[in-house]
């Protein structure tokens, strides 16, 4: 690989991290909040797809992409609230409901979304943060969406709130030990309901990014499983919002590797380059894990990490 080629790949990976990571970020932050409260919502893939479709439709009809983002957040909130409300019922398994909600959300999006595959909707604006550098390739890489910056801010805000605010503490106690939370007078079910609904809203915004910014179009294959992967990334991130950010950036950068390498002429074995995010994540997990601390960071009430 020449130096120029290497530089091109590095720039592409930075650009990829910025472009591709945002949906992962919003979904994983939403799921992080939900799981911190002791509940799992595996259905965020469906929320992501529904959010994408709703955002596109609203932007198309209203002409205002930000209305689309708001509508996607509302749709995600509604799906999350439904999930939360069902899981309040005794004997209902949250993991199972999540998988069913994935099917329901995707089905609803595909059902309602048929008329929006062909049209073009107003797209979210971008912020040209890199223009001052005077290097066109870098400038393009730093042509970022406000949603990306919002996602970063949300990661740090959540991180801070979990540590320093009363609400953050309430969520954490609820997620770690429901009995103790009840003893403190916390309405466990209500906390979880709110956390799940807000988590859904965040995932809905992730969907809006897909349909209104990058790749910026609605079709039925838009998500290709990104929502499910993002939920799994929360475990990888050990339930820490800042690690969710890191994991999403890593995933985005690795996802840019395949096309970038092919564009500079390294073409053999591209299936493995395209699978780089998965291989890399698995290697990192196997490399940093140890037998004794399988779920040390997990919220105690979580049903998938016992």
């Amino acid at each position: 690989m020449t130096d120029a080629g290497l530089f091109a790949v590095l720039v592409a990976m930075v650009a990829g991290a910025i472009r591709v990571s945002t949906p992962f970020l919003f979904v994983s932050l939403g799921e992080c909040l939900t799981e911190k409260s002791g509940r799992v919502n595996l259905g965020l893939e469906g929320t992501l797809v529904l959010g994408a479709m709703v955002a596109f439709a609203v932007s198309y009809h209203s002409g205002n992409p930000w209305l689309g983002v708001a509508a996607a957040a509302a749709a995600g909130f509604a799906l999350g609230a439904l999930h939360g409300a069902i899981c309040r019922l005794p004997r209902v398994n949250d993991v199972a409901i999540g998988i069913a909600m994935m099917s329901f959300g995707t089905g609803l999006a595909v059902f309602l979304g048929k008329p929006y595959i062909q049209p073009t909707a107003p797209r979210l604006p971008s912020l040209p943060l890199g223009d001052w550098l005077g290097i066109p390739s870098l400038a393009l890489a730093l042509d970022v969406s406000p949603l990306f910056l919002l996602g970063i801010a949300l990661a740090f805000l959540l991180d801070w709130a979990f540590r320093n605010t009363r609400a953050g503490l309430v969520v954490r106690v609820t997620g770690d030990d429901a009995a103790a939370a009840r003893a403190l007078g916390i309405a466990v079910d209500r906390v979880r309901l709110v956390a799940t609904a807000l988590g859904g809203a965040s995932a809905g915004i992730g969907g809006a990014f897909l349909s209104l910014f990058y790749p910026g179009s609605w079709n039925e294959g838009l998500s290709s499983g990104q929502g499910l992967m993002a939920v799994a990334l929360v475990i990888f991130a050990r339930w820490q919002p800042r690690r969710c950010l890191a994991a999403s950036l890593l995933f985005g950068a690795a996802g840019a590797l395949g096309p970038a390498l092919q564009s500079i002429g390294i073409t053999a074995g591209y299936y493995f380059f395209n699978a780089a995010p998965y291989i890399l994540t698995l290697l990192v997990m196997a490399g940093t894990g140890s037998a004794s601390r399988a779920a040390r960071h997990a919220p105690g009430e979580l049903s998938i990490t016992r």
Partner: peptide
């Protein structure tokens, strides 16, 4: 650039960007 499948919107966009950058 081969994307590897018939409909992968994100990777298609990435491929288009990679070619533009190249």
């Amino acid at each position: 650039i081969f994307t590897g499948d018939w409909s992968l919107p994100v990777r298609e966009a990435e491929a288009a960007n990679a070619l533009a950058s190249a």
